[in-house]
Nucleic acid binder design. Structure first.
Lengths: 211, 211, 211, 211
DNA sequence: TCGTAACCGAGACGGTACGTCTGGTCTTTTT
DNA sequence: AAAAAGACCAGACGTACCGTCTCGGTTACGA
């Protein structure tokens, strides 16, 4: 099975300073690191809802302005702290079979969000995005779209192999696959079991092949 | 098409006082009404994130304690205010065809959450439930489970008609159907169009009939 | 030494109910007792500032209205609870000597206000009277004037014995005697020692006899 | 007659911040002034019992924390607002005669506490000090002891002039003089007339000279 | 080399809302 | 009619954070 991490492109990390002449004292990378580390710590301990800029600044030994200079809001800071760990845990499976690809992708996602605090941080970020439009944009651009683009490659391959028709609506397929998973994560009405993953993929693959 | 609203069973409204002999001055139903009306008003204007207990109390002409006596948190109050409108808008379609039933149910849900502020209030409630465990429980019991129980009846009928196998995993089916829809509502990466609804149902029905 | 307690005249206890025909259920004397006992308890534990009607009602097993029906304010309730103990501890000495009479009266007062919580309750009542005009009136009528009237008898006797002139200004004399003592109680800048009592009386008697 | 105001030594004003290197943004003196002015205003209008931190903050156009950062309690704030006016109204008379010195000092005090709201504010402060130990300490240190130290100078001079014995107990003398006055202020049983002042001083001076 | 621009940590600033407490009143049922 | 119970409106409490601002100081660049 091949495996391709999300390229660490774009940026993971704080807002860049002014592009051009770079006069004055440069931003401290040490501060960047200390802030993200402190944020991760607090996120793991208390979740996003319990994370205040005040506490992150105190733990990082940094002034609050130093944080606000880099991130416009609590949510975007949390996003960067989150991505540092989450990013790269979402593989692009390539098994030669759509069923196995989808199952591997879903299992990888589920592995990330269960067990540790990652799942509830992810849920917290989606929650925060409902009230912070800036975070909503970042979230879509840097997480949702990125992952979807990657997952669409699996579908491309399946089309190329003739497993599914070329007219397949990729967007809807991915909404079905991950929508179901996010649904359980956010509503908590049912657990994210492997049996669940298998069933989801079964119904989905069958549906794609008979439409 | 037959149509059955969710029975207003259980309770919609504030926490009940002590069950037994009801000593002392009874809770004011007038206050109940004023609080819920004020909460609905604020929710529509500013969304859940912008709703403070303080403002609801002021608008309702009520002391803050009168609210805290009935609802343990902002979220549970918002839930009651929300349900007063949302409840009863989710029909139980009975068209004689699984495809049409699922489509009608999904379309009804989409009608509720688009156009007005209901959609973002619903999203706000799910967001709030991520940080308020009490709300999470109420949300599951009074919204999620209730709706799912109702929707399972559609699947029962389809089984009875022989459209789908008796072994069908109802939980997964509903997660696929509504998970996809909630996904678009919460992530906002794609709009909730009727084309989306038709595609979701098509893939799903095909998948159920060929597994 | 003769000794005459303040007659328990006037009233110690709650406001009288309606004078005339006494219809309906009679006031419960049991409640009176329970309230005063509870008030004394709380006063001793937390002082007047820490005594709330709410807590007294709860400890007495009585509704708040039952207290408000009898006493117009926290202060007047505290006054009654206080007087139940303080009243009768202030003797009217009759030793045959002004110096000894004054000294005995001052010592009796000092004995009352030191050692137990009585002193700080008394201070608390004077404090409360600064913000509760009703209490101020009761305090003057039922404590200050009563005690002063009694103490003036000592001065009458001294005049009769020819120890001090008939023109002596009783009011000023008592203000000097007890004013000094209250001063130390309330300001706390110096302790209420027996040495203090003797000095006060010495200066005072000397002053009276040479004016 | 010479006249010496209390030196504005020690401090009149809010709690000092940390002594040493003064890091961070310095406390705003503008805020200090606005708070004290607002407090004085409210004190004059409603008295200490009717003064809330909330209202002072609102009138001063200042956050509540800005007040709490400087003063630990309502009482200590009121004390500073009070002292700004009271301080300096208490002269140190030097007439060459003990009788005249005492009379002048007592009359100055009486002038301060009658007529305007100063008297009831002073009474309110003493009342508040009964329930706020921090205020009690400040009150003793910054008002009582300061004034007494000043007044003892009058007694020193009288001793030097041979008017009274060197063994005179200054503490008791001052307790008699001002105790009587505070007594009338706080108990309200008799008015603070000039006749009262003359009588008090007469008895006291006579007493001192014949003991 | 020197000025100046942008950064740094610290902490005060004006605000908003929190959830609690108490005051004094009102409304039930029970005695 | 008074009792116990407990809900009612009102409003202050002291705290936590928000996002901004002002200090005294530190880097680095460009004149």
């Amino acid at each position: 099975m091949a495996d391709a991490r999300i390229p660490a492109s774009g940026h993971v990390g704080p807002e860049p300073g002014p592009a051009a002449p770079r006069r004055g004292r440069p931003r401290s990378e040490e501060a960047d690191r200390a802030i993200l580390a402190a944020a991760s710590e607090v996120l793991a301990e208390r979740g996003l809802a319990g994370m205040s800029i005040e506490e992150v600044a105190a733990r990082a030994g940094v002034g609050k302005t130093t944080i606000y200079r880099r991130w416009p809001s609590r949510g975007t800071l949390a996003l960067d702290a989150f991505l540092a760990e989450f990013q790269g845990q979402q593989p692009l499976p390539d098994t030669g079979s759509l069923r196995e690809d989808l199952l591997a992708a879903l299992r990888a996602w589920m592995r990330s969000v269960t067990g540790t605090s990652t799942g509830s941080i992810l849920a917290g970020l989606i929650a925060e995005a409902q009230r912070d439009p800036g975070l909503a944009v970042s979230w879509r651009e840097r997480v949702v779209e990125r992952l979807r683009d990657q997952h669409k490659i699996m579908l491309d391959r399946a089309v190329a192999r003739g497993e599914i028709p070329a007219e397949t609506d990729y967007e809807v397929v991915l909404d079905l696959l991950f929508g179901a998973a996010y649904h359980r994560l956010l509503q908590g009405h049912q657990p994210l079991t492997d049996q669940f993953a298998r069933q989801v993929v079964s119904y989905l693959v069958a549906g794609l092949q008979h439409t």
